[in-house]
C-alpha cells in the first residue's frame, strides 16, 4: 500500500469541521444507550440492549466484540443514528446523532456495512463518488472538488488502479477497500464499520486494519468497528467493548478487557491470553488434545 504515502494530509481529504474540534477532547459520547426490539408492542421484547456507555476521541479506534447476536450491530446502528435509542443518547461533537438531518448525518457519519449486491453494475469510481452525495444539491453534477476528493479517497486505501473496474468484477478485499474509499469520500468525523473483515483472507484483514489505523491517525477519524476477530481488535484498537447477550460487560484498553476468565465465560470455550511485547493481548485456542 505504498500509494497511501502520496496524499495522507491533502487538504481535500481532511474531514471538514475538524479544525474547531481539537480542543474538545471527546468526539463520540455514548451515554446510557439502551434499546429493545419486539415483533409487536404487546409482546415481551425479543432482544434488548442494556444501557451502554463509552466515549471516544478523534483518532481513536473502538472495537466492539462479542458472540453472535450480542447486540453489536444494533449498537452500531444506534451510534449511526439510524435507530432511535429507547433511553440514553449518542452525541457526536455534542449533537444527538439520531436527531441530525439526513444530509448532515451523511456528512459526519460514514457507515461501511456488510456489502449488499448492486442491482446494476457500476464502476469503482462511480461508487466512490456516491460518497459525495450528502454534499450535493438535488441535481448537481459532480464538481472538480468532488472528483479530487474521490481520487484521494481511492489513493488513501491504495485502490486507484481499481478506479475503472466494475464492482462485480473485483475481489472481496478489493471491494472492501473501494467501499471504505466511499466512506472516506464522505469526509466523516465518525467512521463506523460492521464486520469489515468478514469474507476476507488474513492478508486482506491485516491490510484493512493497517489502513484503518493509519487513516484514524492521519485524518483524525473516530473509528468504531464491529468485529469477530479478537486478535485484530487486540492489535489495532485503542478501546475494546465486550458484549454478551445485549449487555456491555467491559470497556477499556484491549489488555484490560481481554482477560482469560472473562473471554472463556463469554465465548464458552477454553482460551489463553498472552501479552505481547507491545503490551497488546493475543488470544489463542489451546491446541486440541
Amino acid at each position: 500500500m505504498s500509494s497511501f504515502a502520496r496524499s495522507p494530509s491533502s487538504a481535500a481529504a481532511r474531514p471538514i469541521g475538524d479544525a474547531g474540534d481539537f480542543n474538545s477532547d471527546i468526539r463520540l459520547s455514548v451515554e446510557q444507550v439502551s434499546y429493545a426490539y419486539s415483533a409487536n408492542p404487546t409482546q415481551a421484547p425479543l432482544f434488548t440492549l442494556e444501557a451502554t456507555s463509552f466515549q471516544a476521541r478523534p483518532g481513536e479506534i473502538v472495537a466492539i466484540v462479542g458472540p453472535n447476536a450480542c447486540g453489536k450491530s444494533t449498537l452500531l446502528k444506534l451510534i449511526a443514528g439510524s435507530l432511535e435509542p429507547l433511553s440514553g443518547r449518542v452525541l457526536l461533537n455534542g449533537f444527538v446523532t439520531h436527531a441530525l438531518p439526513h444530509r448532515t448525518r451523511g456528512q459526519r457519519i460514514a457507515m461501511v456495512q456488510q456489502e449488499s449486491p448492486l442491482l446494476f453494475p457500476s464502476r469503482a469510481w462511480e461508487f466512490v463518488l456516491q460518497g459525495r452525495h450528502p454534499y450535493g444539491r438535488t441535481l448537481r453534477f459532480e464538481t472538480e472538488e468532488d472528483i479530487v476528493i474521490a481520487r484521494n479517497a481511492l489513493a488513501q486505501v491504495g485502490a486507484e488502479h481499481l478506479s475503472d473496474r466494475f464492482m462485480d468484477q473485483i475481489s472481496g478485499g478489493e471491494k472492501q477497500r473501494v467501499i471504505l474509499a466511499r466512506a472516506l469520500a464522505q469526509q466523516p468525523l465518525l467512521l463506523l464499520l460492521d464486520e469489515p473483515t468478514l469474507h476476507l483472507d488474513i492478508g486482506a484483514q491485516v491490510d484493512l486494519l493497517e489502513t484503518l489505523r493509519r487513516l484514524a491517525s492521519a485524518n483524525r477519524y473516530t473509528v468504531v468497528v464491529v468485529t469477530h476477530e479478537l486478535n485484530l481488535a487486540g492489535q489495532y484498537a485503542d478501546q475494546v467493548a465486550l458484549f454478551q447477550k445485549g449487555k456491555c460487560l467491559r470497556v477499556g484498553p484491549p489488555a484490560a478487557v481481554f482477560r482469560r476468565e472473562l473471554l472463556e465465560q463469554v465465548f464458552q470455550t477454553p482460551l489463553t491470553v498472552e501479552l505481547g511485547s507491545s503490551g497488546r493481548p493475543r488470544v489463542n485456542m489451546p491446541s486440541a488434545k
Binding site: 449511526a80 448532515t104 449488499s116 446494476f120 456516491q130 450528502p134 448537481r140
Partner: peptide, 17 residues
C-alpha cells in the same frame, strides 16, 4: 441522484444522506 444510491439498498442510501 437519490435513486442511484437506492440501487445499493435503502440502508446504504440512508447512510449516504
Amino acid at each position: 441522484s437519490d435513486l442511484n444510491l437506492l440501487l445499493a439498498g435503502e440502508k446504504e442510501a440512508m447512510h449516504l444522506g
